[in-house]
Design a protein around this nucleic acid. Structure first.
Length: 273
DNA sequence: AGTGGCCCCTGGCGGC
DNA sequence: TGCCGCCAGGGGCCAC
């Protein structure tokens, strides 16, 4: 489940892999629906011959800037991965879209086919709908506090809302709320200033640890998420996500699993108020 | 403004 | 062992 740390890792990987400045020589589209802005033919006709200028991240979007001013926005959704492959590597059946460069392949690998690639002249039409970046200087605890006061949603729903803060998904939402000792069911406008400070602190801490972990375990394109609830090669144990029934690391109360906004949600009913 | 339901997909798992 | 059926999960969209 790629969230901000995974997407950040992909972007760093692409930048390290010397993709910037490379020309797109050919494109293979094996699953047309992976491209949600154009038909495969239009997509290819536009992109072949273009160069990648810059690669950045915004929320969970990978933003590939092209030398003609257009942009490719890639959203990995549930199961998408970007693989950087040698030209002669065999193609796996889940590789939905492939960009052929002179010396490598950039492959969009997506078994569940939820991910989407958008080619657009105006990426801001999409990106401006996103909330602040978790590490943006604009995201202060006071800003967060005031934004929480202006809503009456439960905290889990708000953290998952990409127009509120960009980049947080189901795993980290649970981990962040546990770390901040705030219940996922807490209504946002009851959160205090002090709790807002803790929340911002937890958002940045949890995401930073995750980004740092991913940095040690990437490159293979394999999912870092494992069903045993561990992340990355070094197996950082999650505090609550998929830890249903296990003892809370703070108070030993069993971790509870509930549904909030159609999402599985894990929390400590004693620690999180 | 906020909530709930549906849809897109398929690997994986529980039940039998 | 094998098969069937169900579900998770991000986000868009629509109805209320």
């Amino acid at each position: 489940m790629p969230e901000l740390p995974e997407v950040e890792t992909v972007v760093r990987d692409l930048n390290k892999a010397d993709v910037v400045g490379k020309k797109i020589l050919d494109i293979s589209v094996n699953w047309p629906k992976s491209i949600n802005s154009h038909t495969p033919k239009e997509f290819k006709d536009h992109l072949i011959g273009k160069n990648f200028d810059k690669i950045t991240r915004r929320g969970k979007f990978i933003h590939l800037h092209l030398d003609d001013g257009y942009s490719l926005l890639i959203h990995l959704r549930m199961s998408g991965h970007i693989l950087i492959k040698e030209l002669d590597e065999p193609i796996n059946k889940h590789e939905q879209v492939l960009f052929h460069l002179s010396d490598k392949l950039i492959s969009f690998h997506d078994p569940r086919k939820f991910g989407r690639i958008t080619l657009t002249k105006n990426p801001n039409t999409i990106l401006d709908k996103l909330g602040e970046e978790p590490f943006s200087e604009k995201l202060t605890s006071l800003y967060l506090y005031e934004k929480l006061q202006s809503k009456k949603k439960n905290m889990k729903t708000l953290l998952l809302d990409q127009s509120f803060i960009a980049g947080i998904g189901n795993i980290y939402a649970d981990e962040i709320l546990f770390d901040a000792k705030i219940s996922p069911l807490r209504i946002s406008n009851t959160v205090t200033k002090k709790e807002s400070v803790a929340l911002l602190n937890s958002i940045q801490k949890i995401l930073k640890v995750a980004i740092d972990k991913r940095g040690t375990s990437l490159g293979t394109g394999e999912s870092n998420f494992r069903s045993d609830g561990k992340l990355g090669d070094h197996g950082q144990q999650l505090a609550v996500f998929r830890q249903t029934g296990k003892k809370c690391i703070n108070c030993t109360t069993p971790i509870k699993k509930i549904k909030v906004a159609q999402r599985s949600t894990h929390y400590c009913p004693k620690c999180q108020k």
